[in-house]
Computed example of a mutant assay.
Amino acid sequence: ARMLATRSLTEASGPSWTTILRSCGAYEAYVRTYRGMPSSRNAAEFLLLDRLFPRSIIYSIQRAEECMSAIDPRADRVGHSNAVLRALGRIRNDLEYSPITDILGELPEHMERVQTVTREASEAIRQRFFPTQAEPSWIGEIS
C-alpha cells in the first residue's frame, strides 16, 4: 500500500511500475498474467485486486479475514461483532466493488485507508490476544 501510494504521489519522478512490481516480487507473475510491459492501470490492478497473487492487497485482506475467523471461533449468525473482521470487510468491499479507474484516481486516499485498517486490525489483535495491561504475578518457590 505504501509503495502504491508513493508511486501515485511521485508520478513524474517516482519509480516506474516495473520497479514497483520487481520490489514487490511481482514482476514475473505480472508478465505471465498480462503478457506485456506494465501499464499503470494493469500494474495497479494486479497489485491491488488480483485474488490469486499472494502479495496483492486483496489477497492479503482475504487471508487476514480467514485467519481472524480461525482464531476467533465465535461465529456470528448476523453480521460480525468482531471489530477486526468488520474493518477488513469494509476495506475489502471498498476495493473490490470500486472500478479500478476510481481507485487509481484516488490511489493515495485508498492506500491510506488500507494502512489505517491494517494498523487498527493489528492493534485490535494485540489488545485481544496479547494484553499488556495485565501485570505479571510471580509465584515464589515454596521451601
Rank of each mutant, 00 (worst) to 15 (best):
N93S: 09
R86L: 08
I142V: 12
R63D: 01
I139V: 15
G79W: 09
M111W: 04
Y59E: 00
R74W: 10
A43K: 03
E11G: 04
T6G: 09
A12I: 09
A87C: 06
A64M: 10
R32F: 01
A64W: 01
L49I: 05
I103R: 04
S98E: 08
R92P: 00
S137H: 14
W138E: 13
L88Q: 04
V31S: 02
H110F: 13
R22S: 14
L52E: 07
Y59K: 02
S13I: 04
R22T: 14
Y97A: 04
D72Y: 12
L104Q: 02
E66Y: 11
P131H: 10
D76G: 15
I57S: 00
A5V: 06
R113E: 03
W17Y: 10
L95W: 07
G36P: 06
P54C: 03
S98T: 12
G14A: 08
P99A: 05
G14M: 08
E141P: 11
C67S: 14
V84W: 01
E109N: 02
A70L: 12
A124H: 10
P73S: 11
I20Q: 10
T116D: 02
M68I: 10
I57R: 00
S23E: 14
P15G: 07
I103V: 10
E106H: 11
E123M: 06
A44I: 07
M3W: 15
I58N: 01
L21G: 13
